[in-house]
Structures are given as structure tokens and as C-alpha cells.
Design a protein around this nucleic acid. Structure first.
Lengths: 219, 219
DNA sequence: ATATTTTTAGACAGACTTGTCCAAATCGTC
DNA sequence: GACGATTTGGACAAGTCTGTCTAAAAATAT
């Protein structure tokens, strides 16, 4: 364990903790009330901080939004990367392992708090602040698709799948995995684990009907 | 052509025209700026109407939102119904006809102006005003899914498809059709017809790989 | 223990909005 | 042409919110 004390910042500890607390509260309020409807007094209260502190840290309301988006995107990218690493490379029971992977993907990336925030901010501010999400737009979905496509191509090469265009297959896999959750997520319902498992099972079954091939370890 | 003069309303023509104009402008502004950020002066200006007229017609800002949502939902429901009626019942070239159907679905329901409005309003106001969309939530997607499922079941019965659960298949069909468009739509990019066709072709190809069966009229 | 930085609470001006009121003007109808 | 309803533009009060300022308090580092 590196003791990792940021050397530059002078009074880091509680200072940084408050910074994160503010960003979290701001994310919540921005998502619930929209940018224009977000009240900085409310954000400060929810963060357990005086209003002035909010201004000290982030200056502008606009600037606060920028910080929020930046933070959320970073977290989401990390989560996606982490989850993608658990893709079944050498499957024994491909269907079961793909289902488990799909469930993890939903849990960690799509139905998670940050996933919800990013989705909501994209919809409410995406059109108005394209620059805010420009970086994510290329580094996020594109890289995710490419990474997933590479994994799928590997499985195809190993004889598990038959895929012509791995990129298309990757996007379709994600689309199928989300098919049943969209509606629930829009209304902020919390999706039960049961639902997630059913949804993932249906998705993977259809995906394998389309792209599955030989099953070296058939039961 | 029916001369169709609405008999009940006393001063219908320009009055009703203004009503729609206001709702359209309000939809645009609500979607762009969010409810809190929407400025009634701006709505009035965009509708080509004085602010007082907006208040005369709809009273409250809240009330205006209700009217907008109601109108959009009605239009969307009509569009979906109309498009569903063009589902290929007695296909000759199933793949081509499903692709054409998918393109129509995207054009008329998802990428259309109203489709964009509904999606945006759902995301921005869905959680805060669940009652607003409660009606749609059951009459909209549920009915669409059921109708599409029935059509698919018919095709299955006719020997074109092999489907266990038509409801799941219907949702997955829609998910596949939208797979490539989500990202573009979030940012308000206008999707080219070329993109729509490619996307639909990919979707249908995968769908048929999963559920397609015999092809009575093979080329 | 002291010095420095951060935080707090409150007050404050300025700007912006909503919703109402009203008299004049416009429109459609008879 | 006259009448009634609708629309208009402008003014208006009430309220809210942002962003700044200040002096006191708290926390941190030396």
C-alpha cells in the first residue's frame, strides 16, 4: 500500500472529502431537478456544507456541473473497464457464464447509481453541452464496444461463436442485455435481482441462438 | 374532403391553431431547457403568441406541461398503432419486409420529433411526475409489445419463425432495432436514412438468425 | 501555542420569473 | 357595420435564486 499523500494540495484531507461530498450531492440534485431547477442551497445542505464552501470549491454553478460530469464519467469508465475484465475468456458453460457477465454488467454499470446519473445527465444536458460529453462519447461507448467485440471475436476464434462482424455483435449483445430494463430505469424503479437474472438469461439465450456454434462441453 | 367544423367549440379555428402552436413550442422548449429552465416568455415567442395567451389557454406552467405530455402521448400512440398495422402479415421476402418495417418504426416512432420529445420528457420528468406518464406506461409499451408479439406469433404459426415466448421476442426485436441509434439520438444528431437502413438490416439479420426457420420462398 | 487556511452564517444587491391585471386593439361572426 | 370574444402589450408585485462580501469560528499545520 502506497501512502499516497497528494503532495501539491496543501490541506487535502477534509478538504477533498468535502469536494467529493459536494459533487455527490450535486449529482443527485442535478439529476432530480435538472440543471436550471437545481438549487445550490439544497446542494450545500445535502452535502452537509455551507453554501459558500460550494462556491469556494467550484466557483460557478456551470463549473460545478462540469466537475460532476467529469467525476461520474471517470467512475463509469473505471467500472466498465473492471467489469469487462471479467468476461469469460475460457468458458466451461458458456451460457451460464455469459449470463453471469451480463448480470454483472447491469449491476455495476447500468443500474448502478453512477450509471443512472450518467444516463440522466446525458439526456438532460447532452444536447446543450455537447463538449461536456465529447470526450466520453469517443472514449466511452466506442472503447467498450471495441473491447467487447475483441472478447467476442476471441470466443469465435475458439469455436464457441460464429460471428461475421464482432462490432455489430457487441452492440447487439448490449442491446439485448438492456432490453427489459429500459422502462424500469426511466421511472427510477429499482430492478430486483430476479428481474436482472431473467432479463440476462433471455438476452444470452437469444444471443447464442443467433451466434452460438459448437459446444465442446455439452452436457 | 369533409368540411369538418367542430360544432361545440365556439371560436375554434384560430383559437385551436394557437393552442397547438403553443403546445408545440412548449414541447420544444421544455425538452431543450428542462421544466424549471423553460421560460414562458420564450415559449410564447416561439409560438408566435403573447404571453397572456399562453396563460389564457393553459393557466399554469405545470398545467402546460400536462397538456404537452398528453398531446405527445396521443400522437405517439397513434403513430405506433399506424406503423404496427404495416407489419408484414403475409411476407414474400421476410427479411426484406422486416427490414422495411423496422425502418418505418424508427422513422415514425423513435426518431420522429414526437418520439424525441416523449423520450426526453420521460427522462426529465418521469421520475418527478410519475402520474403524468402512468397512463402511457401501461397503454404504451405494454400494448405495443403485445401487438408486436401477436404479429410475431402469427408468423411463427405460419412457419416463418420459431419462437417460444413471443413477448420476449417482441421486446428483443425492438431492442435490436434500436441498438445502433441510441447514442446518436441522445445527442440530437439526425440519423441519416443510410444509418437507419444499415441498423435495421443488422437487427433483422440477427433476429432471424435467432428465430428464423424455414423459408418457403427461398431465392 | 501560534499562524495559516478553510469553513461558516448571514446579509445583500441584482437579476430573473411567474402569474395577474388592465385597457386597447384585433379578429370573426351576425 | 356592430357586437362579442380573443388577443395583445405593458406594467406590476411577489417570490426565488445566484453570486459576492464580511467577520467570526473552526480546523490544520508548524
Amino acid at each position: 500500500m502506497t501512502t499516497a499523500i497528494t503532495p501539491d494540495i496543501s490541506a487535502p484531507r477534509s478538504h477533498n472529502a468535502k469536494r467529493l461530498s459536494i459533487i455527490d450531492a450535486a449529482a443527485r440534485v442535478f439529476c432530480q431537478e435538472g440543471f436550471a431547477g437545481a438549487n445550490i442551497d439544497l446542494i450545500a445542505a445535502e452535502a452537509g456544507v455551507s453554501r459558500q464552501t460550494v462556491y469556494n470549491h467550484h466557483g460557478d454553478k456551470e463549473n460545478l456541473l462540469v466537475a460532476v460530469v467529469k467525476e461520474i464519467i471517470e467512475r463509469i469508465n473505471a467500472g466498465v473497464f473492471e467489469t469487462l475484465a471479467t468476461f469469460p475468456d475460457k468458458p466451461v458453460d458458456l451460457e451460464a457464464e455469459l449470463v453471469a457477465f451480463a448480470v454483472r454488467l447491469n449491476q455495476n454499470c447500468i443500474c448502478s447509481r453512477d450509471g443512472k446519473f450518467l444516463r440522466k445527465l446525458l439526456h438532460t444536458e447532452g444536447e446543450r453541452h455537447p463538449k461536456l460529453f465529447a470526450g466520453w462519447r469517443e472514449d466511452g461507448p466506442a472503447k467498450t464496444w471495441a473491447a467487447l467485440a475483441a472478447r467476442l471475436a476471441r470466443l469465435a476464434h475458439a469455436g464457441w461463436l460464429e460471428i461475421e462482424d464482432p462490432d455489430v455483435a457487441a452492440r447487439q449483445f448490449l442491446a439485448l442485455v438492456n432490453a427489459d430494463l429500459q422502462m424500469a430505469m426511466i421511472f427510477g424503479d429499482n430492478v430486483t435481482e430476479e428481474q436482472q437474472r431473467t432479463s440476462a438469461t433471455n438476452a444470452v439465450r437469444t444471443f447464442l441462438r443467433a451466434f452460438g456454434k459448437a459446444r465442446p462441453n455439452a452436457t
